[in-house]
Design a binder for these strands. Structure first.
Length: 323
DNA sequence: AGATAAGGTGATGTTGTAGG
DNA sequence: CCTACAACATCACCTTATCT
């Protein structure tokens, strides 16, 4: 009885949120969270003490601040809906964990495995899905929504459902040919428009995730997931010298700061190169350390701003002067 | 004007179901 | 076993707002 009343109230809350500009799915998610929060705290009236102890117990359980921030925001909306304007605790952003980036070897192994499978309808498709991920940087949602007509003139048109941030990305010639061959020979015609299909129609979000997940596990990398390929795409382009502004366009980022998330690996690469060089310099120091001899090692050419050139040299006795 | 935080929502992990 | 679908809690990506 009381429950029905609450459900009704929640429904009103959802409508209210939508009126305030939330999308349907966000509004429903907020309502669901309020329902969960109701089990732990009094949501009829504001009780800060209770809220603080709730936060404390959640943090003890190891729940991320990000999650708590979302929950507090939802509560704020809820109380606002009830006519209570309040400010609840907020939480500083935590640094994002390192993303998993598949190695070249892992990708080779997986593609090799796909090629060896007898069931061509499934595995030619799976292989091409992975290659499309790797060579376009598409998100899983974008890949699933690809249609036959999106493949044209050696490029693929990636439609982003939200914000109309669509983009045209180039495909390697070979991959383009393989995709055309897949369409004519292996594609299951269970959906009139979808590029990648299963027995029941357009390939399913959950099913595709499972395929990728299990391939990862098969090769000892359970961290692999569809978004890993997007990281691989971006870092490969950056590591091979592509300008970050071009990568931004290819990934469909509105702002460069989003693309910069992908650059840390290239920085790591810079670190490796630097370490390699420093190790060599350090060896010189060991060998020559006791010697009176002063040796200068040329490590590279320099171009000055005025156009002049010089040689960058390092004295092994004090290699730390480098840079 | 560039850094940083907040906010909205898509993505993921987990668990479970079910027909071939 | 394989393919496919679903709910849900939690988290991360990306855009926008805010602050220097």
């Amino acid at each position: 009885m009381e429950n029905e009343l609450f459900e009704q109230k929640l429904q009103e809350f959802v409508t209210w949120l939508i009126g305030n500009g939330d999308s349907v799915s966000t509004a429903e998610r907020r309502a669901r969270r309020i329902k969960t929060l109701k089990k732990a705290i009094n949501i009829e009236k504001l009780d800060m003490k209770q809220i603080y102890s709730y936060i404390e117990s959640r943090m003890r359980k190891g729940i991320k601040k990000k999650t708590l921030r979302i929950e507090m925001k939802d509560l704020e909306y809820w109380f606002k809906f009830l006519g209570i304007n309040t400010k609840l605790p907020t939480f500083k952003k935590e640094p994002a964990p390192e993303p998993f980036i598949p190695s070249d070897d892992l990708i080779k192994s997986i593609l090799n495995y796909c090629e060896k499978q007898p069931n061509k309808e499934v595995w030619v498709r799976n292989k091409l899905i992975i290659e499309t991920f790797i060579f376009t940087g598409a998100r899983i949602g974008e890949l699933i929504n690809l249609n036959l007509e999106d493949l044209k003139d050696g490029s693929i048109y990636i439609r982003s459902e939200k914000n109309e941030k669509n983009r045209l990305v180039p495909l390697p010639d070979e991959l383009y040919k393989e995709l055309l061959e897949y369409i004519s020979k292996y594609r299951m015609n269970t959906d009139s428009r979808a590029l990648f299909t299963s027995k029941r129609g357009r390939i399913d979000y959950f099913y595709l995730r499972k395929i990728i997940k299990e391939l990862g596990k098969k090769f000892g990398k359970p961290e692999l997931h569809p978004h890993s390929f997007r990281h691989y795409y971006a870092t490969t382009l950056l590591a091979n010298g592509m300008d970050i502004r071009m990568v931004q366009i290819l990934l469909g980022h509105a702002s460069i700061s989003s693309t910069q998330i992908y650059t840390h690996i290239s920085q790591q690469k810079v670190g490796e190169i630097a370490r390699d060089l420093l190790n060599r310099l350090f060896r010189f120091e060991k060998i020559l350390g006791n010697s009176e001899q002063k040796v200068q090692i040329h490590v590279g050419a320099l171009t000055y701003r005025d156009g002049g050139t010089g040689i960058l040299t390092v004295c092994p006795e004090s290699p730390h002067n480098f840079m």
